[in-house]
């Protein structure tokens, strides 16, 4: 397989995952913020920080208006990570991947792009946002399912999965990082902190699964453990890393990326939850993110640039 083709598959995987995660995040936070008092320590700026867009946002907008934040994250052309741009990139990728992805895959991504172009930029945005965001999440899930259900397991599928799981792990660390900064990590938490931790779970689609597997009160340490380490939950960082390691093992010359994954797993093993919750959550998550960047670099230098 051509390196450039593998590269486009990887980035299509990343961009579809990012679109879905960002749409869900917006949905959950928009919902949450209606319930929180203004001094809750969490606000619209939290969203911008999770999506890594502070600087660009600061330059582009006056702070504080819900509508502006939503629009910036969802539909701003100047924000490289906005949903509309992620979908547009995924669509440009899939245009050149028609030979390796199922025809319905091309059509679905194309339709998603048309939907985003038509509806995300609309001015009456707050009013209709729930429907659109929900539809985007659903479409992305449908596309993921289509690829899983129709693509032969081979090079193309593995590169798509590398992109998806790397992006997913990255997104989970971001969500945790920002929540950890804004919220108390003590076991005894206030009602609205509890609400926010539940939202953290929901923005990873994890609330229901958490409830089934944890079966006790929501506490910061348990949420952290679930989203970082639970090997049965497909959005936990550890689960994503195992998937990346598996795909790397299937691919030719995958030693370096697999080693980079092992390094991060070793770091996670060496970081106890107690340590995470009590001393330096931000520092630990930041180290995880740096390691994820190294995994990406290993993937890139092994298969895309030579």
């Amino acid at each position: 397989m051509l390196s450039s083709l593998a590269n486009r598959l990887y980035w299509m995987g990343r961009n579809l995952e990012r679109s879905e995660a960002t749409a869900r995040l917006l949905q959950v936070y928009a919902d949450l913020l209606l319930d929180l008092p203004k001094d809750a320590g969490i606000g619209w700026e939290t969203l911008v920080r999770i999506t890594g867009a502070e600087e660009a946002y600061g330059q582009a907008r006056q702070w504080g208006v819900a509508n502006a934040v939503l629009r910036y994250i969802a539909a701003d052309q100047s924000n490289a990570n906005s949903i509309i741009n992620c979908i547009a990139v995924a669509r440009e990728n899939v245009r050149t991947l028609r030979e390796v992805v199922p025809r319905e895959g091309f059509e679905s991504v194309n339709d998603l792009h048309l939907l985003a172009q038509k509806k995300l930029g609309r001015t009456s945005y707050v009013r209709v946002r729930f429907t659109i965001l929900k539809e985007i999440v659903q479409r992305c899930q449908q596309i993921s399912g289509l690829f899983e259900g129709t693509m032969s397991r081979g090079l193309a599928y593995d590169f798509l999965m590398l992109g998806r799981y790397l992006e997913r792990a990255d997104m989970t660390t971001r969500v945790l990082d920002v929540a950890g900064e804004a919220l108390s990590l003590e076991d005894e938490i206030s009602d609205h902190d509890a609400l926010v931790w539940i939202s953290v779970l929901r923005s990873s689609s994890g609330y229901q699964m958490y409830r089934q597997s944890v079966r006790s009160r929501v506490t910061p340490v348990r949420v952290l453990h679930f989203l970082i380490n639970d090997l049965s939950f497909p959005r936990s960082i550890r689960f994503c890393l195992h998937e990346i390691r598996r795909s790397a093992g299937e691919l030719p010359n995958g030693e370096a990326p697999a080693r980079a994954v092992e390094d991060l797993l070793a770091r996670m093993d060496g970081t106890t939850l107690k340590h995470l919750a009590t001393s330096d959550l931000h520092g630990s998550l930041d180290a995880f993110q740096q390691d994820l960047i190294k995994v990406h670099e290993a993937i890139s230098s092994t298969w895309f640039e030579h």
Partner: peptide, 8 residues
Amino acid sequence: YMRAVEGL
């Protein structure tokens, strides 16, 4: 040569 994931 073409640049492929398997090498050149």
